[in-house]
């Protein structure tokens, strides 16, 4: 019969360490029993994980039914000259990629994001094709989608790698500044054909000032301590 020297609890003869504090059992008079079965079994077994595909299939069925029904209604009954069924079908496809695909296929987050963006671009392309508006699609929609994906990817990167709060804030500020600058660039070219940065420059300047302050605080341990002391809550 062995006891843990730290906890004072009696241990099972088969235990080589104390389950409470991990102290090894050293009892010259009663060495650890390695022959008898331990108090609990060692074989692990798991129930199968929940099959989430059924939900995905349900969504697929629902969206498919909506798309087909609207298509039939459109071409057989309501305004066959206006192809509104295509919009519904496109939107159903978009929702399918966003909501149902992750249940059907197990994908890494970045592939999910890529699929979502491709689907969005595809849907907008469909709209552009239907209204013959390739001009706005190429000059406005695609660049904005690209910029947004850049923003989302940057934020996801911060969340995945669990950086410190200050670092996350810095990355977020940087990405936001680039996003705003890019957005104004795209908008200016689309509307006027030239680039006259105004509001995004102001925003970027403000962000730059704060970013510089945070960066200094981040890099200087003494400043960081001071910052903590002054702003503790």
């Amino acid at each position: 019969m062995s006891y843990c020297v730290n906890c004072g609890v009696e241990l099972d003869p088969t235990a080589s360490v104390c389950p409470l504090c991990n102290t090894p059992v050293m009892n010259p008079k009663a060495p650890v029993d390695r022959e008898s079965p331990p108090p609990f079994p060692l074989v692990r077994r798991e129930v199968e994980p929940v099959d989430r595909r059924s939900l995905g299939l349900l969504l697929t069925g629902m969206l498919g039914a909506v798309a087909i029904c609207c298509g039939l209604l459109n071409f057989l009954a309501f305004f066959p000259q206006v192809p509104w069924g295509w919009y519904v079908a496109g939107a159903a496809g978009l929702i399918w990629v966003w909501a149902a695909l992750p249940f059907l296929v197990h994908m890494k987050f970045r592939y999910c994001l890529a699929a979502d963006l491709v689907a969005t671009a595809g849907f907008l392309a469909l709209v552009a094709g239907l209204v013959e508006g390739w001009f706005w699609y190429l000059e406005l929609a695609l660049p904005v989608i690209g910029l947004t994906s850049f923003l989302v990817a940057g934020l996801a990167y911060c969340r995945i790698f669990h950086r410190s709060r200050l670092t996350t804030l810095l990355v977020f500020l940087g990405i936001t500044a680039v996003y705003l600058l890019g957005l104004e660039l795209v908008l200016d070219y689309f509307m006027e054909g030239t680039y006259h940065p105004t509001w995004s420059l102001i925003a970027a300047a403000v962000i730059l000032v704060f970013g510089a302050i945070f960066l200094t605080v981040r890099l200087r341990p003494r400043l960081r301590a001071e910052f903590r002391r002054r702003f503790h809550s």
């Binding site: 906890c7 609890v9 009696e10 099972d12 108090p39 609990f40």
Partner: peptide, 16 residues
């Protein structure tokens, strides 16, 4: 369990 031991209740501990 350490509290119980201090209280004078002998405890045998097993774990999985």
């Amino acid at each position: 369990f350490r509290w119980l031991v201090r209280e004078g209740v002998p405890v045998k501990v097993i774990s999985n």
